[in-house]
Amino acid sequence: MKPSNAKIIKDGLWTNNPIFVQVLGICSTLAVTNNVRNTLIMIAGVTFATAFGSFTLSGIKGLLPRKVRMIIQVLVLSFYVILVDIVLRAYAPAISKQLGPYVGLIITNCILMGRAEAFAAANPPWASFIDGIANGLGYGVVLLAIAVVREFLGFGTLLGFRLAGDWFTPWTIMIMAPSAFFLVAMALWGSNSYNARAEARRKAAVAKAAPDRAAK
C-alpha cells in the first residue's frame, strides 16, 4: 500500500518521530543543542542529507545489488553530507569552524541510514524525499525545543540576543552535555505519557461504544 503524503509527514513529525518513537539521532542532540544557531544549521544539514539521500537511494534501488546495499547507502548519504561540509567551509567559514567535526558526523546520525533502510528501500523517490524532509523536521522540532531551553538557561540569550537581565545567573550545567540527556529524557517522558493517555482514552471510547464486546 502506498502511504499518502500527509501520512508520511504526520509520521515523521509525530506518530513515528525519529527522536520520540524511533529514538534515533540522540547523539547529535548532545553536541549542538547548547546554541540555537548551530542547532538550526544542524537541522538543515540533517534534513537536506536525509531527504536527498533517501530520494537518490530510492531512485537507484532497482539497480542496487543486495550484497553492497549498505556500502552504497553510506556512499550516497556521505556524498550529501560532504557537500554540506564543503559549502559551509567555503561560504560560512565562521559557522563551519564552530560546528567543527559535527558536520562530518551527520553521516553517523542514525536517522539517515534508518530512513534509507526503513522507508526509501521500499518506496518511490518522491515519497522518500518527503519522508526525509518530514523526519528531518520531526528531529528538528525536538532539537530546537531543547536548544531554546539550553541556550536561554545556559547563557540567558536566544540566537545570541540577550533576553535575561544582569540579575540572571546562567545555569552552567545547561551548556554541558549532561543537560541534553536530562532534557531529552524529559521530552521522551512527556511524549510517551501523552501517547499512553491518548491510547487509554481511545480504548475507553471503544469500550463505551460496544460495551458487551469489551465485557467479553
Partner: peptide
Amino acid sequence: VVAFTFLACAAFIVPLAIANEATKKRVESN
C-alpha cells in the same frame, strides 16, 4: 556487483572532488 560499485563510487566521488577543487581558493582565502 563490482561494476555497479565502481560506477556508483565514481558517480558520487567525482562531483565531490570537483566541488572541493572549485572551492579550494575560497577556503584558502577564508
